[in-house]
């Protein structure tokens, strides 16, 4: 996997799979290392999928608790990160379905956002005005994502937001390449249609 996130830059560290083995051999610190490595990845995924910080934190916790229980059954057929993404995505879907709050982004103020976001380098030079515009654009985009069916959100998140290629998305979601492309196409078209008026007015 080549997505953004903590899993990058691990060349000198023990691999995820080695950590799993160590944990199963009784090394608790190996599990803590896995949590440290992936907690932001899972939180980011959950936030983008659910559009709600509180739900995302709940799911994040749920995912790692599940991981704790299920690591013994991880067989290493898929990469650990693939397996984890799948578990996290399922947990998000389950949570969204349970709470039926995945469309309630507008009710969840984004005032918590600035403190937790890690700005990307190219955004550092924004003037205050353009920064506000940028926040508004992001809010519009995130709301439009939240209105997508979950199947579409998955591919948008994995491919466009997280940077996984089609094959990796297919592997994580357990669907074929054609389905990934088709869903991505439809998801993007829907986002563009939803945001077209806003975008044109704001330009």
């Amino acid at each position: 996997m080549t997505g953004r996130g903590e899993e990058e830059g691990q060349r000198d560290r023990r691999s995820d799979e080695e950590l799993v083995r160590s944990f199963l051999d009784g090394d608790r610190s190996a599990f803590e290392e896995l949590v440290n490595r992936y907690q932001s990845t899972v939180m980011n995924l959950a936030y983008r999928m659910l559009g709600n910080r509180s739900d995302a934190a709940d799911v994040c916790q749920e995912v790692f608790l599940l991981l704790l229980r299920k690591l013994h059954s991880f067989r290493g057929e898929a990469k650990f990160s693939t397996w984890l993404y799948r578990v996290a995505m399922n947990a998000c879907h389950d949570h969204a379905r349970r709470s039926r709050r995945h469309l309630s982004l507008a009710e969840s103020p984004d005032d918590e956002m600035p403190e937790m976001e890690q700005r990307l380098p190219d955004e550092g030079a924004d003037s205050p005005e353009s920064s506000m515009e940028r926040e508004e654009i992001r809010r519009q985009v995130q709301e439009a994502i939240a209105r997508l069916p979950f199947k579409f959100r998955e591919v948008i998140y994995l491919h466009d937001i997280n940077g996984y290629d089609y094959k990796e998305v297919a592997e994580i979601l357990g669907i074929n390449l054609g389905t990934v492309k088709s869903r991505l196409n439809r998801a993007r078209n829907r986002l563009a249609a939803e945001l077209e008026d806003y975008w044109e007015q704001s330009r």
Binding site: F64, E123, V141, A192
Partner: peptide, 24 residues
């Protein structure tokens, strides 16, 4: 469409706050 896709790639990473990480 191009703008939207670009914006998606630029969405910032959202991590746990220190309080949330402590709870976890």
């Amino acid at each position: 469409l191009g703008e939207v896709v670009r914006e998606l790639t630029l969405l910032p990473q959202v991590g746990l706050t220190s309080a949330e990480a402590s709870r976890l």
